[in-house]
Amino acid sequence: MRAAYASAIKPDDPLAALTVGERPEPVLPTDDWVSVEVRASALNHHDLWSLRGVGLRAEQLPMILGCDAAGIDPDGNEVVVHAVIDDPTDQRGYSLLSERHQGALADRVAVPRGNLVVKPAGFSFAEAACLPTAWLTAWRMLTTRGRVADGESVLVQGAGGGVATAAVALGVAMGKRVYATSRSAAKRERVSELGATAVAPGVRLPERVDVVIETVGEATFDHSMKSAAPGARIVVAGCTSGPTPPVDLRRVFWLQLEILGSTMGSANELQSLLAFLTSSGLRPVIDSAHGFTEAEQAFARLASGEAFGKVVIDHTR
């Protein structure tokens, strides 16, 4: 079957570690696993980190990449694949597709049957494929971890990336006052079109916010701290600019701030996200869609840093 996979580890040139070619059909580890015919998948920075060797060892290669997929299950149902696999051998208690088990960037992917969520009829396969990682992460950050409430405001750092853009769109759809930063004037314009107030990085906001969505790290964390209202929740799910920002602990205890880690989400949270999107009419922001034969161009688009929203691969072409 066709697949996009890591054939090497290249910390300084991840795209050189990517191969698009033939791989064996999925192996079902136990009877409760099934093979899903993938109709669409979406890329994440997790895929680029895997090509760099972060969370992936050379002895695991070749490893099919990809966490996000939507497709058809063995019974003919249209489904979204939840990418979190229970894994007692991992210190987190789980692993993601493409970490221990082969990933979703292939014609077919093996997953536990319990990881399949019914795709709502109003979603295309491409839209549904955007949800299991970035959109689910943003949903959990805002709701379960951030506990965003009526009348509260939100700051999203680094809008343009998959999680940050999802958080902007979700926050606006929830009726929150949303501020979002980006170094790119073009991306700030796109943020404004989504209904948020766009600001340049480090700019003082009109108000201190109740929830901060932080995926950038060192470059923005000081601004996140200074923008936080008393009792605010700063929810962290990434550190693309570096993992060790300076933190003024006096501000943490004076303002009784909460700094909360968040990663992915549960299958129940994915179902809640789908229900919210269905009722609100909101759909994922797609930067670009590529045929499977264009997978290398899709990875290059993601690696460029110019994408706004999700980069999708259409497995039907």
Score class of each variant (00 low, 15 high):
residue 210 D to Q: 05
residue 220 T to N: 03
residue 153 S to T: 10
residue 169 A to I: 11
residue 256 Q to D: 15
residue 127 E to T: 05
residue 297 Q to A: 15
residue 162 G to T: 09
residue 133 T to K: 15
residue 237 A to R: 04
residue 252 V to Q: 10
residue 81 V to K: 00
residue 207 E to P: 01
residue 139 W to P: 01
residue 286 I to F: 09
residue 40 A to P: 15
residue 169 A to F: 01
residue 129 A to S: 06
residue 7 S to D: 08
residue 9 I to S: 01
residue 292 F to R: 11
residue 315 H to N: 09
residue 251 R to A: 14
residue 76 G to V: 06
residue 295 A to D: 06
residue 138 A to T: 12
residue 308 F to H: 06
residue 202 G to P: 06
residue 216 V to C: 13
residue 50 S to L: 14
residue 262 S to Y: 00
residue 199 V to T: 07
residue 263 T to S: 15
residue 299 F to W: 06
residue 71 G to R: 01
residue 222 D to G: 15
residue 100 R to Q: 14
residue 1 M to W: 06
residue 294 E to H: 09
residue 312 V to H: 11
residue 218 E to S: 09
residue 72 I to D: 14
residue 152 E to I: 04
residue 311 V to L: 04
residue 61 L to P: 08
residue 43 L to Y: 08
residue 312 V to W: 00
residue 31 D to I: 12
residue 52 R to H: 13
residue 30 T to A: 15
residue 61 L to I: 13
residue 75 D to Q: 04
residue 213 I to M: 06
residue 140 R to H: 12
residue 278 T to A: 13
residue 53 G to P: 06
residue 265 G to E: 03
residue 317 R to C: 15
residue 221 F to H: 09
residue 259 I to C: 03
residue 130 C to N: 08
residue 1 M to F: 12
residue 252 V to S: 03
residue 119 K to L: 02
residue 63 M to Q: 11
residue 161 G to P: 00
residue 290 H to N: 03
residue 235 V to C: 02
residue 114 G to A: 12
residue 114 G to C: 11
residue 37 E to H: 14
residue 252 V to H: 10
residue 194 L to R: 01
residue 96 L to V: 10
residue 208 R to D: 07
residue 313 I to P: 02
residue 33 W to Y: 09
residue 196 A to G: 00
residue 316 T to Q: 15
residue 290 H to E: 03
residue 274 L to E: 07
residue 312 V to G: 03
residue 30 T to Y: 08
residue 225 M to P: 06
residue 99 E to C: 07
residue 97 L to N: 00
residue 258 E to F: 09
residue 63 M to F: 05
residue 174 M to H: 14
residue 313 I to R: 14
residue 37 E to G: 12
residue 129 A to N: 04
residue 276 F to K: 13
residue 172 V to E: 05
residue 21 G to Y: 01
residue 211 V to A: 08
residue 186 A to R: 12
residue 35 S to D: 10
residue 314 D to Y: 10
residue 205 L to A: 04
residue 68 D to Y: 03
residue 147 R to C: 11
residue 277 L to M: 15
residue 308 F to Q: 03
